[in-house]
């Protein structure tokens, strides 16, 4: 199961919104194959009746009162954005239609 092709690496990169150069994709395929080969060892363990652990110190989901309370102001939230106008994040046009 552990062999991973360059095509597969490129498919995964697409899912992760990454672009890899040819050289990068080649190198990553090699690295990932080595790592996946190593983690293959887990398959030797019988875990059929074992519950998965998502949180090592399980807690009940905490709830708070449904009341308005101060949060991060919009101006502050957009202050660190690479491109903002007023209190909005500016992104390339998403909806097709007339040129803006």
């Amino acid at each position: 199961m552990s062999a991973i092709t360059r095509d597969e690496v490129e498919r995964i990169a697409g899912l992760a919104r990454l672009e890899l150069s040819e050289g990068e994709a080649e190198r990553m395929a090699g690295d990932l194959a080595t790592i996946l080969d190593y983690v293959e060892a887990l398959q030797a363990l019988d875990t059929s009746d074992v519950e998965p652990t998502a949180n090592p110190v399980p807690l009940e989901t905490p709830l708070r009162d449904d009341r308005v309370r101060p949060g991060l102001a919009a101006e502050v939230a957009v202050a660190g954005a690479p491109h903002a106008e007023g209190t909005a994040f500016v992104v390339p046009k998403v909806i097709e239609g007339e040129e803006g």
Partner: peptide
Amino acid sequence: RKAQQVRTL
């Protein structure tokens, strides 16, 4: 999921 199960172990 396998890794999460081994985490339990």
